[in-house]
Amino acid sequence: MNEQRRQVLEMLAAGKITAEEAERLIDALGRDQLQTSPGTGSGAKSRPRYLRVMVVADEDPAGEGSSRINVRVPLQLLRAGVRLTSLVPPQALSRANAELHRSGVNIDLTQLKPQHLDELIEHLDELTVDIDSAEAKVQVFCE
């Protein structure tokens, strides 16, 4: 954990991240430490490893039978994918920004830092979506 803190401080010193981002990362590391330190006990809840999406839809009017979607994605895979976004060249981001702006979506992709996405995935384990309608049941959760 100390090694990770040192890396954050080095990134701050190198000017790769702002002081605010460094503070947020160190806070996240502190939370991590709090969650993992009591984890040595047998009764502690282990951290989720997978994002699960389950959809079960009843038989459609066309009589094609029921539909079922069961997707399990390792959270580590999401993290690895997020790291890849840092490789997107800035000129590609500015072109994507221009296209988004032209379509009426005012999102600045250059402001979307991998650290922010990392933080988003870090908190995915607390996400639970449960939709139960007459036609379908949708569940999104981490396990």
């Binding site: 997978y50 069961n70 997707v71 895979l77 690895a80 994918g81």
Partner: peptide, 20 residues
């Protein structure tokens, strides 16, 4: 990045069923 992506693949599962 690609290595990390490949390393993280085990455990992935996609199952889609519609009718038959």
């Amino acid at each position: 990045g690609v290595g990390r992506l490949v390393w993280a693949l085990p455990g992935t599962r996609f199952e889609i069923a519609e009718g038959r």
